Simulated scan of single mutants.
Amino acid sequence: MCGRIGQVRPMLASPTDSVPTGPAWVHEVKWDGMRVLAEAKGGQLRLTSRSGRDVTAAFPELAPLATLYDDMLLDGEVITLEDGVPSFSALAERMHVASARKAATLAGARPVTLMAFDVLRLLGQDLTEQPWTARRALLEQLELDGPRWQVPAVYDDGAGLLAVTAEQGLEGVVSKRREARYTPGRRSPDWRKLAHRPTLSVVVGGWRPETGSATRLGAILAGVPDGDGGWAYVGRVGSGLGGRTGQALRDRLTEAAESPFATDVPVEDARGATWTEPEVVVDVRHLGRGSSGKLRQPSLVAVRTDLRPADLSELGDA
């Protein structure tokens, strides 16, 4: 049963390499924002993050949503738009704000929008056992078309939506089985996600060992040209380093006495690191950059033996 919001966790989508096809599936835009459950109860709104943290104070502009229905629980994504496209980095400064005064100021300068894509409870009725088609029909009947919230469209053509989202710079596509019930807290194959991950060529400036090993790569520390002849740190890459790829990369790295980065490396990233000469270029896929400039969810694609570090000033995301 779907009880109070504190007892519920969002249903999660499983990664996929291709958009599912056929009439059993429906497709939505994958929004680059913050997943929340929004509960309206007795004229009050409570927003809870995917981790269960209460983030209501951070988004005061969404409070009027609670006046629409006496009891409602929505699943959705809070986004901030920049030039018509969701910007996670623009949203990041809002996500952890606890001060009501600061939140109000930020809401006035850069308001968020709630993209409500599911309804889990309405007027005391648990809807999680209902198929997606029934929940979606009810969601559309709620007429949630407000200044700071909306119900995004759904599409039958997943491949077409994937192409359009790539063209428009959106994050990707989420595909949902029409007859799927809502399974709180579970990563389900009935929901599948495919994100567009741009590729960036970076220089390796350090590495950290894999847990339990002194020699195998657990992560590399990446940088890009800072515009002044140095290297700006853009994050720790820990995915894609297994097997021969990681060992071959490790063999190419030359130890250095100090960090090659002109910008600060966070303590949690630098801990246990071996610095290297900025000589090796690799490609990483990622989901854009956060407010600090670090890459989001980077993963190693390939070692670029055809590129020198000096070439990177001419390259960007591909």
Score class of each variant (00 low, 15 high):
302 A>R: 08
170 L>E: 04
192 R>T: 07
202 V>D: 00
141 Q>I: 05
155 Y>Q: 12
179 E>Q: 15
234 V>K: 07
256 A>R: 10
275 W>Q: 10
55 V>P: 04
227 G>D: 07
172 G>S: 08
252 R>A: 13
283 D>N: 07
232 A>V: 03
54 D>W: 05
194 L>K: 10
232 A>N: 05
287 L>I: 07
149 W>R: 02
74 L>P: 00
189 P>R: 12
106 L>F: 06
36 V>F: 02
304 R>N: 06
271 R>S: 14
35 R>F: 01
240 G>T: 09
263 T>W: 01
301 V>A: 04
22 G>H: 10
129 E>H: 11
48 T>K: 10
134 A>T: 12
219 A>H: 06
103 A>H: 03
298 P>W: 07
44 Q>K: 13
124 G>V: 09
277 E>A: 15
107 A>Y: 00
226 D>G: 09
113 T>L: 12
67 T>S: 15
216 R>P: 04
234 V>Y: 09
240 G>P: 05
55 V>K: 05
214 A>M: 13
85 V>P: 02
317 D>A: 10
235 G>H: 01
130 Q>S: 14
27 H>A: 03
33 G>Y: 00
118 D>R: 02
245 T>R: 13
308 R>N: 10
260 P>I: 10
98 A>I: 15
62 L>R: 14
239 S>M: 14
187 R>T: 11
82 E>M: 15
43 G>E: 12
151 V>M: 05
180 A>G: 00
190 D>C: 08
295 L>Y: 04
